[in-house]
């Protein structure tokens, strides 16, 4: 308070006295005083290389392309109409949403025990588990996708099939590769850290005494989890699900390499339309729909996180 007074030239104790604003004072307070300007370089970079191309692409989706390939007026919504009228495209939309939901739900279920071990386990276990989770991030998605090709390979020579056949667990090789299952498995592997890390961070903020209080009040361990741990970890769960859903929905490499024709996703269709068909406006339409889905999921999660009870948890 006192600092403010000297800055505006107001002498404390002389209310109503002349207020002299020193020249450049405003600028100093706004720019020098706050570190906000430090994000300027990034902002410029993003504007030129991300926001502008993205906006341009979205504009393409309401434009027409003439036979020479020039994109321009008249403006039209016909690409969107076409997208939702042709079952081939809506099928891909549903495949994308289905695979993303299944991936995030399975990731959440698998991530809870891992995150709990990360937070409550002893230091050695924590370190090893962290390493197992983080290490795959060091390997390119493409390399990992080819790895999954070897493991899931159809026919008796695929690694998984080979093992299962030799163990006598199956009599016929499974057709895993080039199926939605393969895409879910691959996406899970790649996006799992995005679920575990926010979840572990949220679980780490829960006071262990709360769980112990729940136990002394008569709740068995599973009820303590449902009534105390789960609701209190919701911020992490919502963040993780949002991340994994968004990343899975936008996936391109995984469905392209191990998905096969039955599990192509929106990302692959964008590529087809733009590279193979050379239909920029329709490719842009699909891309825009993908962006809208991801934005909608993010908006929903922001809303959930903004709820009163969740705000209380985060305090």
């Amino acid at each position: 308070m006192k600092v403010m007074d000297t800055e505006t030239g107001k002498i404390p104790g002389t209310a109503g006295a002349v207020t002299r604003d020193t020249p450049g004072g405003w600028l100093r307070r706004q720019v020098v005083g706050s570190p906000n300007w430090m994000i300027l370089p990034l902002l410029i970079f993003l504007t030129v290389f991300f926001f502008m191309p993205a906006i341009k692409l979205m504009l393409f989706s309401v434009m027409t392309q003439d036979p020479q390939g020039r994109i321009g007026t008249p403006l039209t919504l016909s690409h969107y109409v076409r997208f939702f009228q042709v079952s081939l495209y809506t099928d891909v939309l549903w495949t994308t949403i289905r695979i993303s939901i299944i991936t995030s739900v399975i990731a959440a279920i698998l991530a809870y025990p891992v995150a709990i071990v990360l937070v409550r386990g002893n230091i050695m276990v924590t370190r090893i588990v962290t390493l197992i989770i983080i290490a795959p991030l060091a390997v390119s998605v493409v390399v990992r996708a080819y790895g999954w090709q070897l493991i899931l390979g159809n026919g008796p020579t695929g690694l998984l099939n080979y093992v299962l056949l030799n163990l006598g667990l199956i009599s016929e090789p499974l057709a895993l590769l080039f199926s939605p299952v393969a895409v879910v498995v691959g996406s899970l592997h790649i996006f799992f850290p995005m679920m575990v890390l926010p979840l572990a961070s949220a679980l780490g903020k829960i006071d262990p005494n709360l769980e112990q209080a729940g136990r002394t009040l008569g709740a068995p361990a599973w009820k303590v989890f449902l009534r105390i741990t789960l609701p209190l970890s919701l911020p992490g769960l919502v963040a993780g699900v949002t991340l994994v859903f968004s990343l899975s929905a936008g996936a391109y490499v995984i469905p392209a390499l191990i998905g096969g024709p039955s599990s192509q996703m929106l990302g692959n269709m964008v590529e087809q339309q733009i590279i193979a068909v050379y239909d920029w406006p329709f490719g842009a339409t699909i891309a825009t729909i993908l962006v809208l889905i991801v934005l909608a999921i993010n908006a929903l999660s922001m809303r959930l996180l903004g709820g009163r009870r969740i705000r209380e948890i985060q305090k």
């Binding site: 005494n209 112990q212 209190l232 209380e312």
Partner: peptide, 8 residues
């Protein structure tokens, strides 16, 4: 010691 009330 820290009351351990359920915040939610």
């Amino acid at each position: 010691q820290n009351y351990a009330l359920f915040p939610h």
